[in-house]
Nucleic acid binder design. Structure first.
Lengths: 150, 150
DNA sequence: GTATCTGCAAATTTTTTGCCAGTAG
DNA sequence: CTACTGGCAAAAAATTTGCAGATAC
């Protein structure tokens, strides 16, 4: 696809993971970068139809998979059943509204301060969930080139 | 159902939320309390069939909903698409294995120490996700009796 | 030129729902 | 007794898959 339309960083991240740089993947990624919420696959689909009218929902799912595999996007599971997607790469936290399901970004700062500020701003905080991701002993991933212990 | 077969605490938590205490709900809850992993609805279904052979998967889903509504279990969304359920009520963290999808309990202790200990024990940690749950300003839940600001 | 990708639709998987007999309170 | 439930099967919702023509490199 047109090399000038996408950033080199985007293209290289895809190619590093063995994926090709296509118009559909760029459109999905650009949309996720342009919003500050965390859309579902279906929301991405409808938004991207403005740029690529004939795109299919299946293609959006495949694009999100490829982007996630390339580390450009993170898939966030949702208690309501449809996953949400986040194109912010720097570490940060999330606030989930139990009424609307909306997911907001929070800065990655120390917890007591963060929670106090949320409460002062009118948020009601009912719980926190912390999940550590990785591999249990023995279930280690195949070491990515240059990534493992040497 | 037979009052002596279930704890009063269990019965009261259900009744407080307007649910009846039934054999099926008790079996689902007992099973979740008896394991230290966090089963999917289908795993709960198969396990509970040992005690209630004619139970249906739909009933298990309904029971899990009732238990979650009563605050006896927590539904944990899963990137692989099927939710997992946790009957531990005290605050704690989770470790998710990216290879097997297994979800382990972690003690709710200070982060740098916890991560160091995991690494020493052979875990490979690749990321952390923190989610704050609650209500955005204006989207407040109907205040539970005695729960809201007075 | 060739392996990968898209679009489309069908298939799969997970969860929810409707209904009527059965049960808890 | 009476409303709430359980079992069952059908439906809905979310995601994945298969394939033939199109595209990236």
């Amino acid at each position: 696809m047109n090399p000038s339309a996408v950033s080199d960083e985007f293209r290289r991240a895809l190619e590093r993971a063995g994926w090709r740089c296509t118009r559909q993947r760029a459109a999905v990624y650009d949309y996720l970068r342009s919003v500050d919420c965390h859309p579902t696959a279906d929301e991405v689909f409808h938004a991207v139809q403005g740029r690529i009218p004939h795109i299919g929902l299946g293609t959006v799912y495949k694009a999100l998979d490829a982007l996630a595999d390339a580390g450009l996007v993170v898939k966030i599971p949702d208690p309501a059943g449809r996953a949400r997607f986040d194109a912010r790469t720097e570490p940060h936290y999330h606030f989930r509204c139990l009424r609307t399901g909306r997911l907001l970004d929070l800065p990655a700062e120390a917890l007591p301060d963060l929670l106090d500020r949320l409460r002062r701003d009118g948020f009601r905080v009912t719980a926190c969930r912390l999940e550590v991701l990785g591999f249990t002993p023995g279930d280690d991933a195949p070491p990515p080139p240059g990534g493992g212990p040497t």
